[in-house]
Write a protein that binds this DNA or RNA. Structure first.
Length: 729
DNA sequence: CTCTCCCT
């Protein structure tokens, strides 16, 4: 069979090539004959034993004849490591071109690239490499196959809009519907119209394959009838063991107690094998671990339990514990959030207990805040959880909900991130690419129109877009930092005042989550170190203190352990800081039209330290002003825009000394709406001074009152009289 | 008195 190679003319598509089903091209394992110089090598033998190996010829045929190939591969079939190698071996990366395989997670890129480099017998970073944020192990001359995070490939489109160096792009785990992979699929569809030679492989779970086929079956080219024949689908069986699923007979009111009883039942009655329990959040996990430890004390010696918590706020060491085999005679019980659903795979799990709930991000464009809501999992997630029991042997899954609930009430799959996220950063990115008409952009799942309106509004009031919604010089500067637009605006303002170092440190700390260790065992230490490092100005300045204190202690692990800080998280913050600093150094912030005179005159002081502190606060307010709130009589807060009722999150530096006015960074909703990462506003009229297009005084009297207050600062208050919908005072 | 999980 002759394979079309990049650089040749595209193969003509005969009438037989359409959506190819197994009956069209049926490939038996025994039919395959090809030369492999490594076939006696143990790795080559392993490769041939993978289920996908039988489909090698079929896959290459589809890629040759169809522009989009959807591979439905069950876990363990080997698609992610093997398909790119088949393409490599068939010559798709000849002639200086490359193959890219995208992943939603960084660790996956690293481990996959290492594995594939080993199978190819090459050094990592030469022929096979990976690119993740802050780490590029590729060589522009040598690398033919690279694993890359979907967000990174999206960044790459910024500098090479047609992705010209790639002959084939494989978007793996597309069914997870991450923000970046969805955006990538939309952009790739546009790229393919301009580059008929580009091949796209989409790997998906069964339930979403048809959606992807429909998405690509029109609009690939001007010829609609032909487009349909350009999409091929292939299913590959996996290599997992059967999992026996048990449902609850009645709905359980208290899933933590039920989970506890179930684990004890499994421990007493079932053969050996570890247990994995899925709950919603950190608090539930800690509670169940505590309950199991208590119950465990009454158990006989030969059936001891080893309960272990797993969630992202734990330190690296604590997370590693779930991988160690339990001591002889003990049964490991990992109690996890959805972290163990995809990002972490634990060997030896035979029993899964699924409470059936998950916390998901929900964006409400009306309020302009992202929230966190506990909801029922989808059937796809429930299956994914169950599958965790059957990785090495047959397993069992206990669902703490009824079969009726599963069949009749659970949605088939989760809502794509695209329709439930704040899209400001993505909209800005698309604007940089010159995509003006967002409503006609081919999103696999178009987000609500209000979300776009809100994004445009936010970007406009930050000065990133002009009156006609075109990107401004400031907007391009913000986009070049690849952090969220509001934080970027703060960094640029800080840099304009000569505070780039401090601003980059704060932005880096904001971009990572959970600087302080979580979990009950750390509470005392964290309380102590917060009393040392946190200040009344709020979390931004406290974060700066933490970073500087860690720096002064040589970025040591010991310092983190002593102070109840998460070393792994701080390391990431340090990486962000380093690279962000480099990008900021390339900007000319003074030329971006920021209100520098106002920023300076508001913050003048005889004390240089005080002046610097006030300048940082003013820069933060000049970026986060849409999220301003003030305290009301019951101790809660009300936002200036929208009148939303909010509460200070327990993690806030100023929790014990709540300020009158503040700006916040984000909101989580559980039973209430909680504000996280808050900065104290000492002078609320700064809002009017720093964002005159957004805030004005409600009445002339209010303005006069404020004017009296402002006289000390010497700022001309005429600036505040512009019309706006937003009122303060 | 408190936080699903990723990612640029």
């Amino acid at each position: 069979m002759a394979f079309w190679k990049p650089g040749d003319d595209a193969p003509t598509v005969g009438s037989h090539a359409g959506i190819l089903l197994d009956k069209d091209v049926h490939v038996e394992g025994s039919d395959i004959l090809f030369y492999n110089p490594y076939e006696t090598h143990p790795l080559a033998v392993q490769r041939q034993r993978l289920p996908i190996f039988q489909y090698r010829k079929h896959i290459l045929y589809l890629v040759e004849t169809c522009r989009v190939v959807i591979i439905v591969g069950e876990p363990g079939c080997g698609k992610t490591t093997q398909v790119p190698q088949y393409l490599l071996e068939a010559g798709w990366a000849d002639g200086g071109r490359s193959i890219a395989c995208t992943q939603p997670r960084r660790v996956a890129c690293v481990t996959l690239a290492h594995r594939v480099a080993e199978e190819q017998g090459v050094r990592i970073g030469d022929k096979v490499g990976y690119t993740i944020r802050w780490e590029d192990r590729t060589n522009s001359e040598l690398t033919r196959l690279k694993y890359v995070t979907d967000g990174m490939l999206l960044q790459e489109i910024m500098s090479d809009p047609l992705l010209t160096k790639y002959s084939v792009i494989m978007v793996d785990e597309a069914h997870e519907r991450s923000l970046h992979s969805d955006a990538l699929l939309g952009l790739l569809k546009k790229v393919m119209r301009k580059r008929p030679s580009l091949r796209l492989i989409v790997s998906s779970a069964t339930m979403q394959a048809a959606d992807f086929r429909n998405f690509f079956a029109s609009g690939l080219s001007a010829d609609r009838a032909n487009d349909e024949r350009q999409v091929g689908i292939l299913s590959v069986d996996g290599r997992c063991y059967p999992v026996d699923v048990h449902y609850s007979l009645r709905a359980k009111a208290d899933y933590i107690t039920s989970a506890c009883e179930l684990v004890l039942m499994i421990n007493k009655q079932k053969p050996k094998g570890d247990v994995l329990v899925f709950l919603t959040g950190q608090e539930d996990v800690d509670t169940l671990v505590h309950l199991l430890k208590e119950a465990g004390e009454r158990l006989a010696r030969h059936q001891l339990l080893l309960p272990l918590p797993l969630y992202s706020g734990l330190s690296g060491t604590e997370q590693m514990r779930v991988f160690h085999p339990a001591p002889k005679g003990q049964r490991k019980v990992v109690v996890s959030t959805n972290m163990a659903e995809t990002s972490i795979t634990i060997d030896g799990i035979v029993y899964v207990v699924d409470a059936g709930f998950v916390k998901v991000r929900a964006y409400s464009p009306e309020l302009g805040v992202e929230r966190l809501v506990t909801t029922s999992v989808s059937r796809a997630e429930a299956e994914q959880r169950a599958g965790r029991a059957g990785r090495l042997q047959a397993g069992e899954c206990y669902r703490l909900y009824t079969e009726e609930w599963f069949v009749q009430h659970m949605p088939p799959h989760p809502l794509p991130a695209m329709v439930r996220s704040d899209l400001s950063a993505l909209v800005l990115q698309l604007k940089v690419l010159g995509i003006e008409d967002l409503l006609r952009f081919p999103f696999p799942s178009p987000p609500p129109t209000q979300t776009f309106c809100k994004s445009l509004e936010v970007l406009y009031c930050l000065g990133a877009l002009d009156d006609s919604c075109h990107i401004t010089g400031l907007g391009e500067a913000l986009a070049s930092l690849s952090i969220d637009p509001m934080t970027a605006k703060f960094v640029v303002a800080g840099a304009a005042l000569g505070l780039q170092d401090e601003a980059c440190k704060i932005a880096a700390m904001l971009s990572v989550r959970d600087v302080w260790l979580m979990g009950r065992s750390h509470t005392d230490k964290v309380t102590f170190s917060k009393s040392k490092l946190c200040v009344a100005e709020g979390d931004h300045i406290s974060h700066l203190n933490v970073f500087n204190a860690w720096e002064a202690n040589d970025f040591s692990h010991d310092f983190c352990a002593e102070m109840g800080l998460n070393y792994k998280v701080l390391r990431r913050a340090r990486d962000v800081y380093k690279h962000l600093s480099r990008r900021v150094a390339r900007l000319r912030p003074a030329a971006l039209g920021l209100p520098l005179d106002t920023l300076k005159s508001l913050t003048q002081s005889d004390n240089p330290d005080e002046e610097q502190l006030q300048q940082l606060c003013a820069c933060i307010i000049s970026a986060f002003f849409p999220y301003a709130a003030h305290r009301v009589s019951d101790g809660s807060y009300v936002t200036v825009q929208g009148g939303l009722n909010l509460h200070l999150h327990g993690s806030c530096a100023a929790y014990n000394d709540p300020p009158e006015w503040l700006v916040f960074n984000d909101v989580v909703q559980t039973d209430r709406l909680w504000m996280r990462d808050c900065l104290t506003i000492r002078h609320p009229m700064w809002l009017v001074q720093l964002a005159p297009h957004f805030y004005r005084y409600r009445s002339a009297q209010d303005r006069l009152q404020a004017q009296d207050l402002l006289q000390d600062t010497g700022v001309d208050s005429k600036d505040t009289e512009r019309p706006s919908n937003w009122l303060i005072f």
